[in-house]
Computed example of a mutant assay.
Amino acid sequence: MIPVLRRIGVPALAVLAVIGLGFGAAEPTTYTLPPVNAKFDYQIGAAYTPPSGVTVVSRDRTATPAAGLYNICYVNVFQTQPDEISWWQTNHNDLLLKDSSGKYVVDGAWGENLIDVSTPAKRTAVAAIVNGWIDGCASKGFKAVEPDNIDSYERSGGLLTKANAVALLQLLALHAHDKGLAIAQKNTTALGTAGKNAGLDFAIAEECGRYNECDAYTSVYGNNVIVIEYTKNAFTKACNGYGPSLSIVLRDLNVTAPGSGTYKYDAC
């Protein structure tokens, strides 16, 4: 199917001001959403040759895009990658979230420190770092960016809020669009329409079939939703409910490559 094409121009008041001065409007930046209901592969754990028929793939920002496909660039925005914690501590320790006793706030399930986005100044600093990564995604040839752990505020012990997360997303969306990239809402049904209002273009939803949440994404983004399930039962359930309209895949939880012993892939 034909991807949706969006255009981002200068703000309306700026356009009016330019026209009023007799100058032409600036050429808008264009970006393309992933094709709807395309065969997808989720490769954020390891990059490998996509299965036959795959036209959309998501890979880590450190990976090379798959040639000839629509590539989504995975970026862990609101938490640290486990192997990058020392880099953050050395270079940006002030941007790691700490509790009242000065201890780092950590997502224990994945061993990832939470990023402190609680103030405008810290969000600006975080955006400067992440926007540099987004620049790298664009220069490599990715077509979209996938900012992960938007819901870190739920694991912050009340130190962060949903509004903090949305404010950072707005900064990232502006920059991604300026670089010609679409940007996804990764999980987080609690956002409602706030993510789209902040500039997000489509959704990547883990286990929405398992938890009966897919409607929360389609009600905001229509069929511009990519679904990843990690159990066969949930995958079958998602396919039965949304297979004709959404991109849906079955993957193993650690999103490993073929030959790993735990690799799992299916699509409907």
Rank of each mutant, 00 (worst) to 15 (best):
N233P: 02
G259W: 02
T64K: 12
G20M: 08
I19Y: 09
P35L: 02
D83A: 11
V36N: 02
P82W: 07
T30K: 08
S152L: 02
R7C: 01
G157S: 06
Q89M: 06
D201V: 06
A267L: 00
T161G: 11
P50R: 05
G209T: 07
T161M: 09
R61G: 03
Q79W: 03
D107L: 13
L171S: 14
E213Y: 09
C73H: 01
A67N: 13
D116M: 13
E27Q: 09
S247G: 14
Y221F: 15
P3G: 02
A267N: 13
T231A: 06
G136N: 14
S152K: 06
E206R: 04
A167G: 02
S58L: 01
P120T: 08
R210E: 14
T119P: 12
L21Y: 05
Q89I: 01
D178E: 12
N37R: 15
V130Y: 00
A190I: 07
W87V: 14
P258R: 08
F202Q: 08
R251L: 08
A38H: 07
Y263A: 09
R59L: 15
S52F: 04
T32R: 14
S86R: 10
T62Y: 05
E146R: 10
V166F: 12
L168G: 09
L33N: 04
T236P: 03
E27W: 00
A167V: 01
C268D: 11
C208K: 02
P258F: 04
A14F: 08
M1W: 03
G108K: 14
T49M: 09
H92Q: 11
E206W: 04
S245H: 11
N164G: 12
